[in-house]
Design a protein around this nucleic acid. Sequence first.
DNA 1: CGGGGGCGTCAAGGACGCGTCAAGACGGGG
DNA 2: CCCCGTCTTGACGCGTCCTTGACGCCCCCG
Lengths: 229, 229
Amino acid sequence: MSRVLVVDDEPGLRRALAINLSARGYEVTTAATGAQALELAASAHPDVVLLDLGLPDLDGLDVLAGVRGWSDVPVVVLTARSSAVAAVDALDGGADDFVEKPFAMDVLLARLRAALRRAAPVAGAAAGAGEAVEAGRVRIDLARREVLRDGAPVRLTPTEWHLLEVLVRHRGRLVPQAQLLREVWGPGYGRETNYLRVYVGQLRRKLEDVPGEPRLLVTEPGMGYRFEG
Amino acid sequence: MSRVLVVDDEPGLRRALAINLSARGYEVTTAATGAQALELAASAHPDVVLLDLGLPDLDGLDVLAGVRGWSDVPVVVLTARSSAVAAVDALDGGADDFVEKPFAMDVLLARLRAALRRAAPVAGAAAGAGEAVEAGRVRIDLARREVLRDGAPVRLTPTEWHLLEVLVRHRGRLVPQAQLLREVWGPGYGRETNYLRVYVGQLRRKLEDVPGEPRLLVTEPGMGYRFEG
DNA sequence: CGGGGGCGTCAAGGACGCGTCAAGACGGGG
DNA sequence: CCCCGTCTTGACGCGTCCTTGACGCCCCCG
């Protein structure tokens, strides 16, 4: 699951958070000082940071700035001071959220989930760019919905693309005919295997070097088809 | 600057927020009911939504779900109930932040800034590095809402611009018809593909060298449209 | 050795989607 | 109150895609 870095100088709270978070499946790292926090933020690669502003060695805002200098990891700030100034400073300093102590654990957990959820699509988009599958001379980019052969775009019809997409998502694994039919044509199309024959043939003609000897779209007689990565 | 949609049934608070936000350069739209909120969320294209959970007609959580069904616009939830349950429900329902009434205006503004700041890089990342996109003889500046062709400004109607904006933000990627319709016209417009045909045609006539052979606004038959960078 | 089922190919029809044009509805500003 | 730009809606031609049937092949099995 997700990695959380808990930064607090108070051992009791640190321990309470660690126990609560671990019990919910988070992987927890703890830091007691600002210096340690900066170090662990770099080495432990947390998915979210819980940062208490009242640290003994460094100002919490400096820790925040230190992290923000090189990372966009979401930071949820904790503070004992109930001053509104602290909240504004923290948020404008790059914090993603702000919780005053004392806090209800379930609220903190909800804010933590929200911070993680927001960050997820960003990482997903970055990873999505490299989500292209390369196999022989063809390159299939699921995110862009684009397929290239020797660098040249290949035109696919909607059904062709849909079928290829399902096969690529299960790349390397055998996909039963009935499953392909249901995923592409919808439920109720469990036996129209002739559809598959036609469309697999069209895909092979567009993608394979020798359509008669398929190396990408392999048929497993009597069972289904497999995309070879 | 940024557009804010304020949703609250209390006229006094609505007015106070509108004045405060306008004074700080935000463009403010207000809604008094949940139904109105859903409508304006689709038509006004806000950059952030301030949503009071205590509405007369709909449950605030339903409004939140309605918006989340088709848009990723950041939502900051306000509530009079000081219950922790409300906060957890709202955050898990897709809200980005949660503020209890009564609140300090500067804290609310800081949370608003934080929500906007977080959302900005997402849109920016999807669009790529720069703010201005250059493709052939046309240059599109998303930040300035300006499009030039051979250096000369091109007049676009609001709808034309919205459509182009969505396509450019996803540049290089195929955008499904249903997604385009929902993002430009709002939810409930998933099947009016004739709108797309008309407006894509208008954009091509204004941007393409040969509207009959589009190179910028490419149609992927049966699937959607793609802006070629 | 003969038969049958699954698979690949091809072709044709009908259906559907797309681009285009134009007229009417709507709304905001003068 | 009128005028103008914009949005909506309908109709039409054309090209493409999906469906469906027929046919031959190969492999497996009897």
